[in-house]
Structures are given as structure tokens and as C-alpha cells.
Design a protein around this nucleic acid. Structure first.
Length: 267
DNA sequence: AACAGTCTCAACCGCGTATCC
DNA sequence: TGGATACGCGGTTGAGACTGT
């Protein structure tokens, strides 16, 4: 990569040109300089950080490095099932508002969530040969992926007594998953004002009968949806193996092939 | 072991908005 | 009020890691 390539933007880039700003991966030394500076002066005023810390980096670069990598509360490691569930739900509500979504996942950055979406979710859409924004894919998420995630969250919370989730909107207690209704209004519509809605009810929303009801209530069910309703209600169809990630479990090859058939019968 | 293809994620870019003077 | 500057967001890129042949 050309780490010294120049930008011709007017504002900060103009200054960057003048001061020979460094680009590319950060070194440990740069990290410690940034950390020391932020510890003393606090976050914000990133151009000042760049100017006075001695780093030959742009303010933007300093900000990004701090927010996405160096903040002490940054959480590392795989996105948990609860986090996946929340990302799917919040994305269905807000779309690509990554920073807004990230606000509800403590320790996760917008960049991380964006990467997760692009690498995992969009990949599934590609495999299904449909657009990630298409109704078909959204239905697949809503009626297959999300219910399976909920099922797995419940199963894992029953089988382990590990530390509670750090996600404030979803908590797991004695085998049931509690979801903050303010974040999932669509799913909590039936909870009549209680502070949390149990996913026992949420799962019910996704059983085959409910899917069928949904179809009747919206439009005459298509072949895709009818077949999906019949298939997605059956756990054994989607559970292959045991230890893999929830996505691989749900989107095994056989089922992707099946969904592809159903999706393209529609066209 | 070597190579090719794929995946992951840190970092960059451009643009829109907020703030300052 | 308007221009300059700073900040934040979403989209994109590409190097390195990983996986399959």
C-alpha cells in the first residue's frame, strides 16, 4: 500500500500534504504516544492530538485508531449470539446506521459491526443469490436466522452458567431471554407495556403457524414463504452438527440450496 | 510444500454536518 | 451570515491470515 499517498481535499488534507502525514498500520510506538496523550488530555480535539502529540498522523487517523482499537472498553473476540441477534434486529430497524447500532453493543465499534455485516451477513445473501436488502433475504433472516439465534441463546443459557451477557438490551436469566422492548418494538408488541418481553413469546412469533398467519395477514403466501414456513419450523432441518457458529448451523449447504430453489422459483 | 482463492479487519477516503470566528 | 475548520459516519480498500487443492 502506498502509505504516503497524497490527498487533494481542501481542508485537513491540505495540511496533511504540508506536514507529510504518515498513513498505514500503526506501530506500537505510535500507539503508546497516542495513549499517553489521550490519558492526559482526554478524547476529542483530534487535530490537536495530531498536531501536539508528535505523531505524524492526521486527526482523523488518531480518532479512528483510538475509537476502534485503543479505547480501554473495547471488547475483543467473536461476536456472541446475543450480539448477532441484536445486530440483526437493529439493522432491520435502522439499516446501515452502524454507529447507532454500535451504541447498543457495549465494547463493539461501528467498524466492527459493519465488518461483521459485510463479511457474514452479506455473504449469506450472496450464497442465496439474492440482494441483502431484498424481501426474500429479510424474510429469511426474520423467520430462520433470528429464531434460530434465539433458540441457541436459550439453549446455551440453559446448559451453561457462565457470566451474564454485557449487552444491556438482552439479558439471559434462568433459561429465558429477555429483550428490551424499546429496542425491539416489533417483537414486543404483545407485551403490553412490561419492561422486558420474554423470548418465549418472541419465539412463538416465529413458529410455523405464526409465519403462516403472517402470510395470510400480509399477502397470499408465495411458494417460497409457504415452503419456508413448513421447513423453518423444523429444528432438525436446520441443526446440523453442534459446535459450529450459529450461522453455519442455520445456513448449511443443503438449506442454502433449498432456499435458492425457493427464491428463484419466485421469479 | 507451494500456490491460488477466500476471508477478515484495520485503516483510509469522501461527504455531510456541526462548530467556530 | 458565510467561510473555514473539525468531527463523525458510511463505504471501500488492501495486506495478511487462513483454507483448500
Amino acid at each position: 500500500m502506498d502509505v504516503y499517498k497524497r490527498s487533494f481535499r481542501y481542508d485537513t488534507s491540505k495540511r496533511e500534504e504540508e506536514m507529510d502525514v504518515r498513513k498505514g498500520p500503526w506501530t506500537e510506538e505510535e500507539d503508546s504516544v497516542l495513549k499517553a496523550y489521550v490519558n492526559i488530555h482526554g478524547e476529542g480535539r483530534w487535530n490537536s492530538v495530531a498536531r501536539y502529540s508528535g505523531l505524524r498522523r492526521s486527526g482523523k487517523s488518531c480518532r479512528l485508531r483510538w475509537l476502534n482499537y485503543m479505547r480501554p472498553e473495547i471488547k475483543r473476540g467473536n461476536i456472541s449470539l446475543e450480539e448477532q441477534l441484536l445486530i440483526l434486529e437493529l439493522h432491520s430497524r435502522w439499516g446501515n446506521r452502524w454507529s447507532k447500532i454500535a451504541q447498543h453493543l457495549p465494547g463493539r465499534t461501528d467498524n466492527e459491526i459493519k465488518n461483521y455485516w459485510r463479511t457474514r451477513v452479506q455473504k449469506q445473501a450472496r450464497q442465496l443469490k439474492c440482494d441483502v436488502n431484498s424481501k426474500q433475504f429479510k424474510d429469511a433472516m426474520r423467520y430462520v436466522w433470528i429464531p434460530r439465534l434465539i433458540e441457541r441463546i436459550r439453549a446455551s443459557s440453559q446448559s451453561t452458567s457462565g457470566p451474564p451477557s454485557t449487552i444491556t438490551s438482552i439479558t439471559i436469566e434462568s433459561g429465558s431471554v429477555q429483550v428490551d422492548p424499546s429496542l425491539l418494538p416489533e417483537l414486543s408488541r404483545t407485551s403490553s407495556g412490561s419492561q422486558v418481553s420474554s423470548v418465549t413469546g418472541l419465539t412463538d412469533c416465529y413458529n410455523p403457524q405464526s409465519v403462516s398467519n403472517y402470510q395470510n395477514n400480509t399477502r397470499n403466501g408465495s411458494g417460497f414463504e409457504n415452503a419456508a414456513a413448513e421447513t423453518w419450523g423444523r429444528d432438525d432441518v436446520w441443526l446440523v452438527g453442534g459446535g459450529e457458529s450459529s450461522m453455519e448451523t442455520v445456513w448449511n449447504e443443503e438449506n442454502i440450496w433449498f432456499l435458492q430453489q425457493q427464491l428463484h422459483d419466485e421469479f
